[in-house]
Design a protein around this nucleic acid. Structure first.
Lengths: 226, 226
DNA sequence: TGTCCATGTTAACGTTATGTTTACACAAAA
DNA sequence: TTTTGTGTAAACATAACGTTAACATGGACA
């Protein structure tokens, strides 16, 4: 449970796609790196140890499938998330992708929105694996199983969104979450809510917790710290 | 009765099947491990102590039936759930499977949906096995053998579903059960019931118990606490 | 066989907590 | 000063739940 932003490596031989995807994922708060072919993807993956690798299937110097197989055969990349980009939207290649150990696939032409929501969904799912564990920061204990927040021995009951918001921020203490990130993680990508909604929820959480542990970073977002 | 994800070991010599099955069970929230032959299955089973083992009958280096017999002869695997995968859908091999102590069998070709529903069903049933122990929380005693709830010395009679509902919630006091969880544990995965059904049962339980020990967590579920 | 009864389920409507927006105040930066 | 971004309170909208009564089902029993 660390506070660094998530690293994403995207490998595709089309510069346009690299451009669009890295721009959009960057806006979501991810740290994006790129590779232009299969070998470069492997090299950079070993250097960077990204949390997620997005692989085009059709690439020079090793296809996405080959890259995936090679990486997956190594213990260090067992848990790395992998998404395939595929022009062939037929079932066969999709199944082949999943067989080689990909976690998801997105078919071209790529819609940034779709890709982003898939990426977020994947991270959310993999986060859930880590779930069940309480988050403890200072004298604050957040228990997602009992749906309770305990501050210095005192139980505090939060509403659903309030809880999810706090849980997100506290999952990586000290890290600043952009308003965009918060929106997509707590509210989902498809939901459109007004600008003040986050503020209001932040306020309610602050109010209910009593302790001031959520810091505003003006023009950027919010972070949790004791 | 803990909250860790259930471990499933699947043994088959066809990589395609391993891939498809583990992908699908993984999506269901299970922790999936694989083995490629009979001996590997035994080794991994001893290491991992899975909750459920899915065994292909036709495997190199010990058939599924042999694996099952070996494991079942050991006390540690008396209660482990075992499902056979069989290409031979004839009655004979099915009966043989159940004789050696399998809990269920699924015939190939496998439909992920079918397998998942069988797996879920098995876990549901096995949950009931663990029952029989009284649950005591505060002055509430729940006796699944006598089918009685005793509150501060006063016996209360609940209907079947009401009892199962209360038993589930009380089995982990404080823990929030999602409506989905409640549905699949009490009603089963295949049954489709309306939205208000849970509420009504919750109400009846609350009413009959007299004490308010079931808390609503809006948008999430219910939890039992004194 | 038909009636009764307990249980389970649904439908309809009431109620409340929760989520969202609006409107405006305030503070810091440009 | 103007602009930009956030804090706050109150008003509003609605999803989610509670409650009741009616309907369905299956077993017990005469």
């Amino acid at each position: 449970m660390d506070s660094r932003p998530r690293k994403i490596l995207i490998a595709d031989d089309e510069p346009d796609i690299l451009e669009i995807v890295s721009y959009n994922l960057g806006r979501e708060g991810y740290e994006v790196y790129t590779a232009r072919d299969g070998n470069e993807a492997i090299d950079r993956a070993r250097l960077l140890h990204p949390d997620l690798i997005i692989l085009d299937i059709m690439m020079p110097r090793k296809t996405g499938v080959e890259v995936c197989e090679i990486l997956r055969s190594q213990p260090a990349f067992q848990d790395t998330l992998i998404i395939f980009l595929t022009a062939l939207s037929d079932e066969t290649s999709q199944i082949k992708g999943l067989e080689t150990g990909a976690d998801d696939y997105v078919s071209k032409p790529i819609s940034p929105k779709v890709l982003i929501s898939r990426v977020n969904a994947l991270f959310r799912r993999s986060n859930h694996k880590e779930n069940g564990k309480n988050i403890e920061v200072g004298n604050v204990v957040i228990d997602p199983v009992k749906f309770l927040v305990n501050i210095a021995g005192q139980d505090v009951v939060l509403a659903k969104k309030e809880f999810e918001l706090l849980y997100l921020l506290a999952s990586r203490p000290g890290r600043v979450f952009l308003r965009n990130e918060i929106l997509s993680q707590v509210w989902g990508n498809d939901v459109i809510v007004g600008d003040r909604t986050i503020d209001v929820h932040i306020r309610k959480v602050r109010q209910k917790l009593g302790v001031d542990c959520i810091t505003t970073v003006k023009g950027v977002g919010y972070k949790f710290e004791m």
